[in-house]
Structures are given as C-alpha cells and as structure tokens.
Nucleic acid binder design. Sequence first.
RNA 1: GGCCGCGUGCCAGAGUGGUCUAAUGGGGCGGAUUGCAAAUCCGUUUAUCGUCGGUUCGAAUCCGACCGCGGCCUCCA
Length: 556
Amino acid sequence: MALIPHLKLYNSLTRSVEPFVPADAGRITFYSCGPTVYDDAHIGNFRSFLAADVLKRFLQSPLCQLEGTGPGPRTVVHVMNITDVGHMTEDDVADGGGEDKMALAGRRIAEAKKSGKIPANVQIDATDPYAVAGFYAQRFLEDARQLGLLVAIEAQKDASLMPRASAFVPGMVVVIERLIARGNAYVAGSTGQRAVYFSVQSFAGYGKLSGNTLDKLREGEGGRVNAADQAGKRHPADFLLWKEDPRHIMKWESPWGWGYPGWHIECSVMSVWRAAIGRTDTPIGESLPALEQAWGALTSFTKPGSQALIDLHSGGEDNAFPHHECEIAQSCCAFNQTPAGGVFARSWFHARHLFVEGEKMSKSRGNFFTPRDLFAQGHEPAALRLELIRAHYRTNANFTMQGLADSARMVERWRKIASATTPGTTAPKARAQDVLTAFADAMHDDLNVAKAIGAVNAWLNTIATPSADDAEAIRLIDQVLGVLERPRLASQGTELAEYAPGTEPHPAIEGRLQARKAARAAKDFKASDTIRDELAALGYAIKDTPSGRVEVSRKK
RNA sequence: GGCCGCGUGCCAGAGUGGUCUAAUGGGGCGGAUUGCAAAUCCGUUUAUCGUCGGUUCGAAUCCGACCGCGGCCUCCA
C-alpha cells in the first residue's frame, strides 16, 4: 500500500484531488450548508451532513496529517446553519414570491396532527412560522445528535456554531448594504415592490465553481423565468438579495422596506460571522440585541487581496449551483479587498446524492426515510451512521435495508473488540499499529472510508483474542468514524422476554411466550415451534437465550 | 440543447497501468453450537471488471466511439 503522508481532498473548485492546506492548521474553519427546517431531514440529507462530520473528525484526529504542518493538535471550527426563513416555494418564481415554505410546513403540521402522525399532545401553533421552524429544528437536532453529528453536539454548549438564519437578518442587511456600496448590488423596482439584486457581471469569478459561466447560462429557457421578475434585472442571472414584501408571512425591516432576504445571503453572513471573524463572547441565543457587536464586525471585516475567507465549505452536490456559486460571489465582493479571483473557501466539499434501493429517493416513490422512522423500527443509530458513511462520499451510494443490516452486524463485531480488557503484548501492539496506519492511509486518500473499513475488518480477522491494545486502536479509529460511541436504543424487559428496540411488550405476545415456555418444559417441541411460527406471522422474531428469557425483535 | 459524473460478483462496495489468479462486509454452501431455530464462531464459494475498438511488453485502471444510468443548468443534501 502506497504511503500517503498527508490528507488529500477532492476540491470541487479545481475539480481535482489536492493536498488540503488550511490557512492555519491550528484553527481550521469549516462551514456546512445545513438543513432547511420546514420538514424532517431525511437520510439523504444526513448522508451529506455526516460526510462533513467525518471530515471534521478526521481533521481533528491524531491519525490525520496535513501537508506542511505537524501532527496537531488541531481545532476545527465547524459551523452549520439552520435555515428557518421560509423563502419561496414555486419553481417559476425562483427569485421570490410564491407560498412561503414555512406557511406550507405549518399546514402540513396541522394535517399531520389530524392524521395522528404527530402526537396530538405536541403543542405547536401551525400558523406561526417561528413555531413551525422551531419544531422541526428541534427534531433535526435530536436526529443529528443520535447520529453523532459533532457540530450538533457541540452546539449544545456553543449555540453560535449552529446559527439560525432568522436571527441574522440584520446582519444580512449590513452585508447587502456593503454590496450596494461596493457596486456589486443594486435596487430595482419602485417603493412597495423593491428588490435588491446582486450583479453577477460585477464579479469576474462567477461560474468558476459550477462551470456555469455567464456566457453558458441559458436565458429564460423553458418559460421558467417569470418575465415580470426578470424585468428589473440588469442580467438574467442576477439573483435576489432582498425582496420588499410587507405582506409576506416572515418579514423584517430594512432600508428597502419590510420584506425578506434572498436565500443565498444567509450563508455568506453566518459563515463569515462565526468562522472567518471568529466567535463573539456572546453565544447566539434568543436575544437579538446581544448580537449587535457582531453586526459591527460584519461592517468592517475585510480580507486582504483575494484570500479565502474560510478553509472549507461543504454541501450536497445540488448546492454547487446556484447556491454556492452565489455565495462565492457575494462573500468575495463583500469581504475581499480584491474580490476578483476570490474563492470564499479554499476547498469545496460536495457529497453526492444517496439512492434508495437503486432508485432516486423521492416522496412519490415512497422510499423516503428519515432517521426517526428507522429508529422507531428498531434500527440502531450506530448502524445507520455506518451505513450512511461507509461508501465514498463522491459516489451515488445506494441505501438498502440489507445494507443497514450489514452495518448493524459490523457494529456488533467492532463493539466486541472495543470492550476488550485483556492486557496487550508486543504482538497486539504492532498489530494495532498496522491497522492504524492502513486506516489513516485510506482516510488521507480523499476520505476513502470504504477502504479504511476494509482495513479494519481485515485486521479483525487476524484477532483471536482481542487485547487492550486492540481496543485502544479501534477507539482511536472510532473517534473518526463515530460509530461505536453512539448510544444504543433502549430495550424493554419483562419476566419472560427482552423486547428489542422497535418492539414492545404486548399481552398477546406475552401469552404466547408463556405457552411456549410451558410446551418446551414439557418437551412438546411441535407445539413450541407452532407458537414461534405464529409470532413470525405477526412480524416478530424470537431467540432463546441461556438465561431462559426470550429476545423479541422485529422479523427482518 | 449545454456542462459534469458513473457503469466491478447474487447484493453492497474498494481497487484508476504490472503478485487483480480483483479488498472488505453481507448472502449462499459446509461445520461447531442449538430440541429445532436465531445469534455467534470456524471453513468455503461466486466477477476477466457496460459494449466495441485503440495505446502499451502489460489495462478494470489510459484514449475513442457506442449503450445504459444519474447530476446540474430551476426549489432541493
């Protein structure tokens, strides 16, 4: 195996795998485009969040080496936004208007309560967009923590790591004003229906990330661009920074009247505020006044030349255009001394989309899973995490129930090693060192998690009795993979049986188990097997244990 | 129409010029164990790498054409 001495990552900006070299290896700045909280995040969303999480973990691991610097320690300032501003919903009015997504989500919540999908005791005002966003944001954080998303766990202590767009609108206004002052944005329309647009022609680098340079963008193709909305623009690709709309469900005050921000600007503001400028002493909480200092910093912060503002920026592959392209334009024009040639982030990290059972995931196909659905069925968070990270982040991985089961078994196997306490000897120490090297080599190679896992399993096959050294090695590995540290779902026990997650004690089951116990005691195996078949028909699998109690789980 | 990516066994998924006669996990098969199962453990099995052509001493790996799938160009992880 070729020795790869430092981390190389695929950079979407340059379309090549290159050494990852942060501006300051002691403090790496990383921004991830987070969820829009108008619905529960699905496993596809989590796959890309988790890919970013593995990257963050590896950067912080002692196993990771970066070109030109020592082994660490390194801190990764990882920021992930929560988009709780509704924005538009209709395709044909992509720059504004349409039904607010939060309003739509509110209606959906009302329907879900009616149909019993959401417990009726959940107190939530479906007509209040902030309440709706808060509801889904909370659920997102729960799922994220279950899956070991470090940024969500860290945000419990420092909420500024997961800023919410709705709290940053004044900051966005500051940045939009800056863009207007620097000649990169302009106000169109008359009072009452003003709009502020970013002028794509004012930024020479537009199109560098996606390849969609201005000469290649098609104008108004397919009748999707609303002529009225286009009228005020200087160039068809100019995008919205602010839309005046005093009647919109979510609105804020601005120099351009009451309205709402465009959907690209929040990421420029929050990433620079938290990662590039650094934290303020006031973690963001509920109170807006505490943030005023930060708005001040946004007014004056300037990066020399065309230097990158942050080290890393991640998102799903669909984010590359237009979202990230627009972020680059806005951020460089607002904060770089010389915007032309600016790239915003040194390296752009995009995860490809997840497929489900070989098909594109979509609600209409009914193959749309959320982590909480799967947890409710008894699937362990550790298994789901492993299943979502085990394929290379730049392939269209295929999520299958079979794969999830595979992952669950792998987790169990690894757990045995991790819990070993037998004292180590020279041999295990060398053996453990070998796997750490192989694991690190694979991870250095553009986060080849599949290969890294292969190395771990091959190593496992050589272990007859795991030692404490082996346990230590797998713990170090798991700091990167984040699988074994996941808490297990709770099972419920009765006198007769242990009910696995996803099942619960029920008189009908208990009765059958009691009858089966009696039959077995009488050595009437025919009767006991019949009962097992009955339970199987009901969807339960049972397993006898040495203690005499029966493990009940969902039939696979 | 433009730009971009992918196509490896029954499944998932590594491998991007030479022990690849293709890693690893699952499945299958055989055995241990079990009243029987399940789980676990041990052993074993399965691919010539979408198709065709080219480059090379040598290709899954590079080049070309074709077929198939997908992404972006429009909200979307």
